[in-house]
Design a protein around this nucleic acid. Structure first.
Lengths: 340, 340
DNA sequence: TAACTTTACTTAATCCATTAAGTAGTTGTA
DNA sequence: TACAACTACTTAATGGATTAAGTAAAGTTA
């Protein structure tokens, strides 16, 4: 590997001069700079990040921590889209992305926790997009001095990008109500996250504001993205004497379980029963009828998170810590029928 | 940050002794080792990867290069599953994963290419899972001395894990033929990859071996995972005077476009026409009827790739360079009808 | 012309961990 | 007892880049 030392020798200058020439500092003559740059190119010089990081404590590397409730993060389309966008913004600003995990062992200290991992790799910043924000290790990371942005959860005095779940659920309920539905069920996860809390609260408040009753049986539980559970929850709803006319699901993927249950019961969507998803991932667009859902601005969330994080890294003093709320928009598919 | 120097001072030993104690070398007494380890723990010592990499040229970091034909890699479920599995194996063996890209600029040299990036970050190995293996930069990387594994493509003298597309398509065609289908169409991508070539060849050969004709119109083109194109291709097939009874799609996702076209034409699956996917991703399992497809052993591919790559990194001399062929298995859903 | 600036560098320290080579002190052996 | 062989360390060099501080030479100013 060609190092600055080699270029310095070749050009008859000091290593410091090479460093300055390549990093474009003014403290060097144009002639020398050109000579050095040409030599660097000719000799196939490649900078060495390890040396740079060691010296500057800047890695141009962002750690990404995620895993959803099911342990599968990458296969979660919502997150995959978000990360994809985050990655391309980071990319364009000269940052790499490395996954944070606990696999690395640090000699005697045993496995590293998230914070240790982040320090070990000298991440300039961290993106956290996982559901379990109560994990002590996640909290430890959030309390550190590393610039970070969280998705769909806000720590105090920390940057976050959250989608507006309150308005999201409200819009969906209002949409269904406008089409004449009064018996609306909501299959929901019951985990501890603020996402879930906001949604459930919004559902109850909106229904209440419309003067609509929500019997307890109308709110069965099913974890996010678990089609098996959403199928069961749907079956339960279908067995009720006073069946809902419209079912809200925790996410688009879960509707697949619901659809299976509904078809198995010999019912038609939306003729016999209407369904609504949440997220706006691709699957829903290809169902027949297409799925009415709340389309999350995934790309916007990913992009905003990246920009905010990088701003936090590069201009910590001028960057206002804030909770950026991003609104989704209802997509009116064909899965909700108009009741007369 | 606590460094070895601090521990050395605290324990009244040299930095070398600390290094040896923490890395478990024999050249140190048990008493001293314990003392140093305890001090390290108490003082909250964290190793510094940059220093380690600089000195040892080992990063415990694997670069992953991917982007599918559409530019979206993460949102490709096949790849997401593969990477997820790859990641957890790498993780368990103490390796991190960083995406390779071209965003980083290397001072005067401009944007870095893939190889430059890999060298810059001192990746111990690289996983390549992208469709365009003709990209000069990819070829440059493949010709370098960095340990690497490719997915679904084989470079000469390089490790690769490929799924058996020949047997995959053959099995699907034989399955359909066994159910009585004689007019089988194959909507396929026409890119340059060996995956595509193998599949097309296998389709033609298998059909030929069965004595079945394949009119040119039975092989319309649609890029992988482009539902819009698969919809159009399906429409074309449906308009034919002598319509096929069964359509093979390039992948499961593409069947969504096909299903839309078929439903729009007022036809039933599989009553009026049978369809077959490829990949075995989740969507297909939730369709009604469930999709008959070739289920790829995604996890096995990811796991194998990780194990082979790490073996290549850690035991280069004892690791045989090979092309690991992984066979998928047909999943018999309900989307292919039995013809009498 | 003397004194001061500026320019264009060089010197040397530094970031942190690893490791070959060196050295006391102890134990073993003939 | 004398020399060899260990053991348990220390010394010092090293990896590659950055940067504060120093310096010689050229340019500027009174």
């Amino acid at each position: 590997m060609v190092s600055m030392k080699d270029i310095a020798r070749e050009c008859g200058v000091s290593v410091a001069a090479v460093s300055k020439a390549l990093s474009g500092q003014p403290d060097i003559s144009e002639a020398t700079r050109d000579k050095i740059r040409k030599a660097a190119e000719n000799m196939g010089y490649q900078p060495n990040s390890a040396a740079k990081v060691l010296r500057t404590h800047r890695s141009n590397n962002i750690g990404v921590l995620f895993f959803d409730e099911a342990g599968n993060g990458l296969t979660n389309e919502f997150f995959a889209l978000l990360l994809d966008r985050f990655k391309s913004v980071a990319d364009s600003k000269g940052y790499d992305i490395t996954f944070i995990n606990r696999g690395l062992s640090s000699g005697s200290v045993g496995k590293m926790n998230y914070l240790a991992h982040a320090r070990y790799r000298a991440f300039d910043g961290v993106l956290i997009a996982c559901m379990d924000f109560h994990d002590p290790e996640v909290i430890e990371l959030a309390k550190s001095d590393i610039p970070l942005v969280t998705i769909d959860y806000s720590f105090e005095d920390r940057m976050s990008v959250v989608s507006d779940n309150v308005s999201g659920i409200r819009d969906l309920v209002l949409h269904c109500a406008k089409l004449g539905h009064r018996k609306i069920a909501y299959i929901h996860d019951n985990n501890e996250s603020s996402v879930t809390r906001d949604r459930v609260r919004s559902f109850l408040e909106t229904m209440d504001s419309l003067g609509l009753q929500v019997p307890e049986e109308y709110m069965p539980v099913a974890e996010y993205r678990k089609t098996e559970n959403s199928r069961k929850a749907t079956e339960k709803l279908l067995r009720l004497k006073d069946r809902p006319t419209c079912i809200l699901y925790p996410d688009d993927f879960s509707t697949l379980g619901g659809i299976a249950a509904i078809k198995a019961a010999g019912l038609e969507i939306p003729g016999d029963i209407s369904i609504v998803g949440y997220d706006g991932i691709r699957v829903g667009r290809h169902l027949t009828p297409t799925l009415t859902t709340l389309r999350q601005p995934t790309e916007l969330i990913g992009e905003t998170a990246a920009k905010k994080l990088i701003s936090l890294i590069e201009n910590p003093s001028e960057t206002k810590i804030e909770k950026v709320v991003v609104k989704g928009r209802i997509y009116e598919g064909g899965s909700v029928v108009k009741l007369s």
